[in-house]
Computed example of a mutant assay.
Amino acid sequence: MERMFVNLTRYAIRFVGAAAAIWGIAYAINGATQAHGYISIRVVPTLEAADQLRVSGVKLPAGVVLGEGELPLTVWDSTVAEQVLSRADVLLGGLCAGVAALLLSSLVHGQPFRRGNAGRIAWLAVLVLVSGLVGPMLSSRAAATVLDRAGLAANFLPSLSLSWVPIAGSVFLLALALVFRREEKRSGARLEAATTDPPISS
């Protein structure tokens, strides 16, 4: 019964990982099919006073101040590269989730400290860091490309929203990997001692 539960858990993890990877790829492909249409990006205004900022040829009245912070911007006539890059965070997150699912399913064997598990956990830490940091950077790069093409680079900056959560998660997983590495060595030493033949007494 326990063995069946372990196998079902492994299959469920792999299914979720495969679904996430397929969704990420499909989402990016769907974006590519929307080239030459609108693209939505997140930007930050470079000017505080809206009366100095022209958007689509419309000059806001004096005394009206554009609020600071991130805001959405929709631009026409996108390219394939812009659409894919703007969805790269979802694509990368899905692919990382797929690889992470394979690593997690390998961990579920009923033997937590078997050889190789520490390395798998360390790779999980790398995947969390890559997905959480590289993905937003790619989306920010897409926004910068769109702003340059639309001639709005002087008015807006691409938004880059980085979170501390992936960093904290990676640090935790790396610490867990070190614990598993230590336990693996202890388990290996105990197994070696148990399999060593006792000395022959004269």
Rank of each mutant, 00 (worst) to 15 (best):
M1I: 08
R3H: 07
M4N: 11
A12W: 01
I22G: 06
I22C: 12
I29G: 01
N30C: 04
I41H: 05
R42Q: 13
P45M: 07
A49H: 12
A50P: 05
D51S: 07
L53D: 03
V55L: 15
V58P: 02
L60A: 14
A62H: 09
A62D: 04
G63N: 04
V65L: 12
V65T: 13
G67D: 09
E68C: 02
G69K: 11
E70R: 11
L71Q: 15
A81Y: 08
V84G: 00
A88Q: 03
D89G: 03
D89I: 00
C96L: 06
C96T: 01
A97C: 11
A101N: 02
L103M: 12
L103N: 11
S105I: 06
S105N: 07
H109C: 05
G110W: 11
Q111P: 00
P112S: 07
A118R: 05
W123E: 02
L127C: 05
L129P: 06
G132N: 05
G135V: 02
M137Y: 00
L138V: 01
S139C: 04
S140R: 03
S140V: 01
T145Q: 08
L147M: 06
D148G: 10
A150P: 03
A150K: 11
G151T: 10
G151E: 10
A153D: 13
N155K: 05
S159M: 06
S159G: 14
L162C: 07
P166S: 06
I167A: 05
A168R: 10
A175G: 13
L176G: 08
L178R: 04
L178V: 08
R181P: 08
R182H: 07
E183Q: 15
E183V: 03
E184G: 01
K185N: 12
L191H: 10
A194V: 06
T195D: 09
P199L: 12
S201H: 13
S202G: 13
